[in-house]
Nucleic acid binder design. Structure first.
Length: 315
DNA sequence: CTCCAGGCGCCTT
DNA sequence: AAGGCGCATGGA
């Protein structure tokens, strides 16, 4: 694989034995990286666009990202020496062109890639991703964000942001949520998902499932283990397999993807989810999940435009 | 007001 | 195996 286009602001030619000095800022050269599409495509729920940059929380670190197209500039609340946690999350080193080259060559796929080239799949923390998508069922993305925001305020550990920014909280640990009551969780407006989240947190804490071990399993085995958890079905399991564990063939089918495929590939039929999964396996190549995210983002943003133009259209 | 949202679990056929 | 329904909450 090609050398990563990474430059920290303190990347002097220091020897390996010499630790890099800690810094609150770093810059990374990027190619084909659409930061806005990536952070706002419904795979992560805590990024906020403020004053031409994205503010977010990764683990116990507050981070702000700004981009000019060829670089991503990062600022953190507390100085760090090692930035691998960020480059890994953003998947900066991934050769996107090689991935795009495996996508099926058809009109809908070309349109989707053309509309948001540079969209990346993130590599998220497995527990945060699992809990977040558990809360996603039959909710709009704005509401998912709201629920998670309240959950973090109420159960997350306070962390240090840059001066001038609102208080920040880490995503709550499974240990902390396992100690909560169902009504505590319902107070975060998550409704019927509260007992699912509570039971899942308790199973993680009791090692009934080992989330770190799943990355070493074949995708089918990892999926089966996730689907043992209450509130985790095929779709949410595939979101976690794709967005946290990086299984590139995981293929979440939600109402949007269902709608997109009916419209784009099956105009005169009404394929079931199972039929779509088979279609993805045979027609979408080894990075089916990556392709799916392009279609998801494409149709979701396009639907927004057509809906609003329709609303304002004159007779 | 109604309809629906990055579903799932459970219950009928 | 496949299809239908209830579930909490709040945008549109």
């Amino acid at each position: 694989m090609a050398a990563p286009f990474i430059r920290s602001s303190f990347s002097s030619a220091a020897t390996c034995a010499e630790p890099l000095p800690a810094s609150a800022h770093a810059t990374f050269q990027v190619r084909d990286y659409d930061l806005g599409a990536t952070l706002n495509s419904g795979q992560a729920f805590r990024w906020e666009f403020r004053d031409k940059g994205w503010n977010g929380i990764l683990g116990k670190r507050w981070v702000r990202l700004e981009t000019d197209g060829s670089c991503i500039h990062a600022s953190v609340g507390e100085p760090v020496a090692d930035w691998n946690w960020l480059t890994d999350y953003l998947q900066i080193e991934v050769d996107l062109v090689a991935i795009l080259g495996t996508f099926p060559d058809n009109a809908p796929m070309r349109a989707a890639v053309g509309s948001c080239r540079g969209l990346r799949l993130l590599r998220q923390d497995n527990w945060e991703c699992l809990a977040s998508f558990l809360l996603s069922s039959t909710k709009q993305i704005v509401q998912i964000r709201q629920i998670i925001s309240v959950l973090c305020e109420r159960f997350g550990e306070p962390i240090l942001a840059l001066p001038g920014h609102p208080p920040a909280y880490a995503f709550p640990t499974a240990e902390r949520l396992a100690q909560a009551s169902e009504s505590d969780l319902r107070a975060c407006k998550m409704g019927f998902r509260a007992p699912y989240l509570l039971d899942t947190a308790r199973r993680v804490v009791s090692s009934q499932i080992d989330l770190d071990r799943l990355k070493d399993l074949p995708i089918e085995a990892a999926r089966s283990e996730l689907m043992e958890l209450p509130g985790i079905g095929r779709k949410i399991a595939d979101c976690v397999l794709l967005f946290a564990y990086g299984f590139p063939a995981a293929f979440p089918v939600d109402v949007w993807v269902l709608k997109a495929f009916r419209q784009l590939y099956f105009p005169n039929r009404r394929p079931t989810t199972k039929r779509l999964l088979r279609f993805s396996e045979t027609q979408f190549g080894p990075n089916a999940g990556y392709a799916q995210q392009y279609l998801f983002h494409y149709i979701r943003t396009r639907a927004g435009r057509t809906a609003s133009t329709h609303e304002h259209e004159n007779p």
